[in-house]
Amino acid sequence: MITVFAAWLAGLIFGLGLILSGMADPAKVLGFLDLGGAWDPSLAFVMAGAIAVAGFGFRLARTRTASFLGAAMKLPIAREIDLRLVGGSVLFGIGWGVAGFCPGPGLVAAGMGEIKAWVFVGAMLVGMGVFAWIERQRARRMGSHH
């Protein structure tokens, strides 16, 4: 139960950070992605601030076999740099550039009551469902070959 509360708190702080940083606003994100126009470097400063702080967290996390609340440490183990990673990131980057929303800011903007953000989030959930469906079909087909 305490881990559920910790997750809620982490989500809340994450959202507050997105709002304070200005990244909940797609116009500001697009101002960063528009190198050919009047460029707003703010997003780079958000990432620098976040990485600087999280760097300490992950350095400490690496030394632990369980979290401070006793949960298992689930750090990523994948190391492959393959077509899935790059192709998926290309699709994500295109979608990001089209509207200026990535998943976190989309949810925060939805929490601000923006109908357009809910439309984005709805479409994103459909996209994730499509991924899950394709992967299930693939797994079934692979399974039937063996």
């Binding site: 910790a6 702080i13 950070g17 958000v46």
Partner: peptide
Amino acid sequence: ALAGGALIGLSATLFVLLNG
């Protein structure tokens, strides 16, 4: 931007240290 980013970093730190 830096302050908001630091909050995001704090969230990531809490989440990995408390929830793993």
